[in-house]
Simulated scan of single mutants.
Amino acid sequence: MICLSEDNLRGLVHVVDDDVTLADGLSNQLKSSGFDVQNHRSPAAFVQARREAEACCLLLSIEFPTANGLDFQEILPAVGIHLPVILMTQHPDINWSIRGMKAGAVDFLLKPLHEAEVLSSVRTALQKDRERHAEDARRRKADAKLARLTARERQVMGHVVRGLMNKQIAGVLGLSEITVKLHRGSMMRKMAVRNVPDLVRAVEFSGASVLAH
Rank of each mutant, 00 (worst) to 15 (best):
H159Q: 13
T179H: 12
R132K: 10
Q73L: 12
L76N: 03
Q48D: 15
K141H: 13
S121D: 06
S61D: 15
A105C: 04
S42M: 05
P84R: 04
E74N: 08
N68I: 01
L70I: 10
R154S: 09
G34K: 11
Q90T: 15
A142E: 03
G104C: 04
D107E: 10
H40I: 09
S33M: 09
V37L: 06
K111L: 08
G163S: 02
E52Q: 14
E63D: 09
G80V: 02
R154E: 12
R152I: 05
K167Q: 13
D143E: 15
E63M: 00
R139L: 05
N68P: 04
I178E: 14
R148L: 12
R138I: 01
W96H: 15
R140V: 07
L109N: 07
V161F: 00
A67H: 11
L109G: 03
K167E: 15
A78W: 04
V47C: 12
R41A: 14
E131M: 09
K128F: 12
N95A: 11
N95M: 11
E52V: 11
Q155S: 12
E74M: 08
K128G: 03
I94K: 12
A44V: 07
R138D: 07
A53D: 05
A142V: 00
R132M: 08
L175Q: 10
F35K: 00
N166Q: 10
K128P: 06
A170D: 07
D71Y: 03
R51F: 09
P84N: 09
V79D: 02
E54P: 04
A170Q: 01
L113T: 08
F72W: 09
E52S: 14
D136P: 00
C57N: 03
D143L: 15
T66C: 11
S42K: 09
P43L: 08
V85Y: 04
R162L: 10
K128V: 06
A142D: 07
K128Y: 10
R123A: 08
K145N: 07
L175M: 14
L58H: 00
M165P: 00
R51E: 13
K145F: 06
E131N: 04
G104V: 04
P65W: 08
V79Y: 03
S121T: 03
R123Y: 05
H133E: 12
K102I: 08
